[in-house]
Computed example of a mutant assay.
Amino acid sequence: ILYFTGILVGILMALLMRGTMFKGEAVPFVMELPNYRMPGAKNVAQLLWEKAKDFLQRAFTVIFVATIIIWFLQTFDLRFNIVSDSKDSILAVVAGWIAPIFAPLGFGDWRISTALITGFMAKESVVSTLTVLFGSSTALTTLLTPLSAASLLVFCLLYTPCVAAIASVKRELGGKWAAGVVIGQCVIAWLMAGLVYGMGSLFI
């Protein structure tokens, strides 16, 4: 269901942007393909090096800075003392501020908000952060109902993929587009998760 939800939302957004932001006739595009040849090892190595170097110079700087910020927020409290429990960290405080935003979606808990923030680094870290903060799957399933869990899954599916993806958008299209992508995807994810939670509440 999640897989096809992602495809459906992508198609709907493409249709919406085609009629608004990218309105008008499509520009003809012609690409002349070169003759197919066996690639030389030297050419492949040079191309790989150029692409890797470009990524490290542009995208990696954003990822590195974001990693340091998340680490700092998880390690220190508001008085810049090292915390022994993550619930006392700056990140937990910030997550507590934004937790009410997710309350209408069924998961307005600071620990889930913390996991969603760390998910900006990589979506995989959402699960690991939830495991660390809740301690066990039982504690998490006690907090989340099946409906709120479905809402959370939809939000995780649709909100900003990761810092690396945003860094690539910034590199290709600029900072304004990157910021717009982050805001737009978070808004779409919130609306779709709210729709799932609201529709589910009517039938359950």
Score class of each variant (00 low, 15 high):
Ile1His: 09
Tyr3Cys: 00
Phe4Lys: 14
Thr5Phe: 09
Gly6Ile: 11
Gly6Met: 12
Gly6Asp: 12
Gly6Arg: 08
Ile7Lys: 09
Leu8Ile: 14
Val9Ser: 09
Ile11Arg: 03
Ile11Lys: 01
Ile11Gly: 01
Leu12Thr: 14
Ala14Thr: 14
Ala14Tyr: 10
Leu16Lys: 09
Arg18Tyr: 11
Gly19Ile: 05
Thr20His: 07
Met21Ile: 13
Met21Gln: 11
Lys23Phe: 12
Gly24Phe: 08
Gly24Leu: 06
Gly24Glu: 08
Ala26Ile: 12
Val27Met: 10
Val27Leu: 12
Pro28Arg: 11
Asn35Cys: 05
Arg37Thr: 10
Arg37Lys: 13
Pro39Asp: 12
Ala41His: 05
Ala41Cys: 01
Lys42Glu: 15
Asn43Ser: 13
Asn43Trp: 12
Ala45Lys: 13
Ala45Thr: 13
Gln46Trp: 02
Trp49Pro: 00
Trp49Thr: 07
Trp49Val: 09
Glu50Tyr: 08
Glu50Met: 06
Lys51Phe: 03
Lys53Val: 06
Leu56Phe: 14
Arg58Gln: 13
Arg58Met: 15
Ala59Thr: 10
Phe60Tyr: 15
Phe60Ala: 14
Val62Glu: 03
Ile63Leu: 12
Ile63Trp: 04
Ala66Arg: 01
Ile70Tyr: 02
Ile70Pro: 00
Leu73Arg: 00
Gln74Asp: 13
Gln74Ile: 01
Phe76Ser: 07
Phe76His: 05
Asp77Gln: 08
Ile82Gly: 04
Ile82Thr: 10
Ile82Asn: 06
Ser84Pro: 01
Ser84Tyr: 14
Ser86Asn: 08
Ser86Pro: 03
Lys87Trp: 04
Ser89Arg: 01
Leu91Cys: 00
Ala92Gly: 02
Gly96Ala: 11
Ala99Ser: 15
Ala99Asp: 09
Ala99Arg: 05
Pro100Ser: 02
Pro100Asn: 06
Ile101Thr: 06
Ala103Trp: 07
Phe107Met: 08
Gly108Phe: 10
Asp109Pro: 05
Asp109Glu: 14
Arg111Met: 03
Arg111Trp: 03
Arg111His: 02
Ile112Pro: 00
Ala115Leu: 03
Thr118Ala: 06
Thr118Asp: 07
Met121Tyr: 02
Ser125Gln: 13
Val126Arg: 00
Val126Glu: 01
Val127Lys: 10
Leu130Gly: 06
Leu130His: 04
Gly135Trp: 00
Ser136Cys: 12
Ser136Asp: 10
Thr138Ala: 15
Ala139Leu: 11
Leu140Phe: 13
Leu143Ile: 04
Leu143Asn: 03
Thr145Pro: 03
Thr145Ile: 02
Thr145Trp: 06
Leu147Arg: 10
Ala149Lys: 07
Ala150Leu: 15
Ser151Phe: 07
Leu152Lys: 02
Leu153Asn: 07
Val154Ile: 10
Val154Tyr: 02
Phe155Glu: 01
Pro161Trp: 04
Pro161Glu: 04
Cys162His: 15
Val163Gln: 03
Ile166Asn: 09
Ser168Tyr: 01
Lys170Thr: 11
Lys170Tyr: 15
Arg171Phe: 11
Gly175Asn: 11
Gly175Glu: 13
Gly175Trp: 10
Lys176Gly: 08
Val181Trp: 06
Cys186Val: 09
Ile188Asn: 07
Leu191Lys: 04
Ala193Tyr: 00
Leu195His: 00
Tyr197Asp: 00
Gly198Pro: 02
Gly198Cys: 01
Met199Phe: 15
Met199Arg: 04
Gly200Asp: 05
Leu202Phe: 12
Phe203Cys: 08
Ile204Pro: 06
